[in-house]
Simulated scan of single mutants.
Amino acid sequence: MTEEPILDELDRRILNTLQTDASHTNAELAELVHVSPPTCLRRVKQLTEGGVIERQVAIVNPDKVGARLTAIVEITLDVQAAERMDQFEKLAALENAVMQCYRVAPGPDFVLIVQVPDMPAYHALAHRLFTSHANVRNVKAYFSTHRSKFDTRIAV
């Protein structure tokens, strides 16, 4: 297990600001968190190199790009040996429509968050990832009818 980094108040201000909008220039970010640009740049570099900041991305509205169907899918495997769990996890990671994949306990073995254009696309994904995979015993899917909250921020 990796050691959790010690974050001071400046690190927290930087992280909270970047989680709200990562498009700020270093100068803008420095001004927003009340430090000099060189200090800000050094801290962001340390947070990135230390793995606290994994990556910076643009969050795309799924409705604007035709990925209107969100499914939350529970997967139970027939055999839960470590290598079989790893095998399924790797297959899920290869699917572009699988946005998130979690090993969970108790209950199912995995919970997936899937984003696809429509039900035919979900069925194609289900065939590729679930029904053609010999170790999948049970699939339970929930289809979102309304997204009332979506956030990527973590309280720091």
Rank of each mutant, 00 (worst) to 15 (best):
M1I: 07
M1P: 05
M1Q: 10
T2I: 09
E4G: 01
I6E: 12
D8P: 03
D8S: 08
L10N: 05
L10E: 06
L10S: 07
R12E: 15
R12H: 11
R12I: 15
R13H: 12
I14D: 00
I14P: 00
N16R: 15
T17P: 00
T17I: 05
Q19D: 10
D21C: 09
A22N: 12
S23L: 08
E28N: 05
E28Q: 15
E31F: 04
E31L: 15
E31A: 15
L32N: 04
L32G: 02
L32Q: 13
V33R: 00
V33Y: 00
V33S: 03
C40V: 05
C40N: 10
L41N: 12
R42V: 09
R43Y: 03
V44G: 01
V44P: 01
L47T: 07
L47F: 08
T48D: 05
T48R: 14
T48H: 06
G50E: 07
G51D: 07
V52K: 04
V52Y: 04
Q56S: 14
V57F: 12
V57D: 13
N61W: 01
N61G: 07
P62Q: 03
D63V: 07
D63N: 11
G66Y: 05
A67S: 09
A67N: 10
R68Y: 03
R68V: 10
L69E: 06
T70E: 09
T70W: 03
T70V: 08
A71L: 13
I72C: 06
V73M: 04
E74A: 12
I75E: 00
I75T: 06
T76Q: 12
L77I: 15
A81T: 11
A81H: 13
A82W: 01
R84C: 04
R84I: 05
M85G: 01
D86P: 01
F88H: 05
E89D: 08
L91H: 02
A93N: 07
A93R: 11
E95I: 07
A97Q: 06
R103H: 09
V104F: 08
P106R: 04
P106T: 02
G107H: 07
P108F: 09
P108N: 07
D109T: 10
D109I: 03
V111R: 11
V114W: 00
D118T: 02
D118S: 13
M119R: 13
P120F: 06
P120W: 07
A121H: 04
A121T: 04
A121V: 03
Y122C: 09
H123I: 12
H123C: 11
A126E: 11
R128S: 13
R128F: 01
L129C: 04
L129P: 01
F130T: 03
S132G: 10
S132F: 01
H133P: 01
V136C: 12
K140W: 10
K140D: 08
A141P: 06
Y142P: 01
F143S: 12
S144P: 02
R147S: 13
S148L: 15
K149E: 06
F150S: 12
F150Q: 14
D151H: 09
T152R: 13
I154Y: 11
I154V: 15
